[in-house]
């Protein structure tokens, strides 16, 4: 069973052409990152606003919880049946699919952004205001840098959920890696089905790694605790002396 999966994956003919793995992979990434862009546009400003002002935090927690209970698969099918008549041809399936992925992805980004800002050390925030930072300066110079680890991990889990769920887009005739699972199922071709599953799994793990690397390099060392080793202090001293010259 497993060997048939590998031979399916290893067959060059399965990788090329409009139905090939390469094209499906690109489609999958298009759906995922397309949805992620909307998720960020909605989730981050709203999360920052709520975290900074402290208004509406309870409502957000409630909405995020309720959205988690919403069955995305059902929502996708419902939207396609109920609203496809009102959409331009190109968007009959793509519109509902993107909408569902955005609805799925927003809560993680929103609540992590909110929680990240909310959890900034109150003393640091107080000091920032006390030193004369304006509201916007407090937000961008203190709250956002300190909330960054949580914001990025929100984006990370949001992206993973989106990538995983983008597979069901294939059920409503769209492309992406889900195509192999759905087609394999209807053609009783287990190798194709499982090959698609392996690809989606690998894609998810790879994207998770990329996000982990981004997280590592974007967040201040003062927060992550990855300080320069004492051995590097020669550079530090050199840097310091150049500062004081």
């Amino acid at each position: 069973m497993i060997s048939s999966v590998f031979s399916w994956l290893g067959d060059g003919a399965n990788w090329s052409g409009p139905d090939g793995i390469t094209h499906r992979l690109v489609q999958h990434l298009e759906y995922s990152f397309g949805a992620l862009v909307f998720v960020l546009i909605i989730g981050i400003p709203l999360g920052l606003y709520i975290g900074h002002t402290g208004k509406g935090g309870v409502a957000i927690a409630g909405v995020a919880n309720a959205l988690r209970a919403l069955p995305t698969f059902g929502l996708l099918l419902y939207l396609v049946i109920a609203y496809s008549g009102n959409l331009p041809t190109d968007w009959i399936y793509l519109g509902p699919a993107l909408f569902v992925l955005v609805v799925l992805g927003v809560p993680a980004v929103l609540s992590n952004t909110y929680a990240g800002v909310q959890n900034v050390d109150p003393a640091a925030r107080d000091a920032a205001r006390g030193m004369g930072m304006t509201g916007m300066q407090v937000l961008w110079r203190v709250e956002v840098p300190n909330a960054l680890p949580l914001i990025i991990s929100g984006i990370r889990s949001s992206l993973l959920q989106i990538v995983a769920t983008a597979t069901i887009a294939a059920y409503v005739t769209l492309g992406g890696l889900g195509r192999f699972m759905i087609d394999g199922l209807s053609q009783r071709d287990y190798a194709q089905m499982a090959g698609g599953a392996v690809l989606v799994g690998l894609l998810a793990v790879a994207l998770d790694l990329v996000m982990a690397v981004i997280q590592r390099y974007v967040v201040s060392r003062g927060i992550t605790g990855r300080y320069a080793l004492p051995a590097a202090s020669a550079d530090v001293v050199a840097a310091e002396s150049s500062v004081s010259v």
Binding site: M1, L160, A164, T167, G178, Y190, G201
Partner: peptide, 24 residues
């Protein structure tokens, strides 16, 4: 645990038979 949680659910459903030897 984090790695296992990363794998999409539908993919895991489909891969189970080849791991467990169950019917699809």
């Amino acid at each position: 645990a984090g790695l296992l949680y990363t794998i999409p659910s539908l993919a895991l459903f489909i891969l189970m038979p080849s791991i467990l030897g169950t019917k699809i």
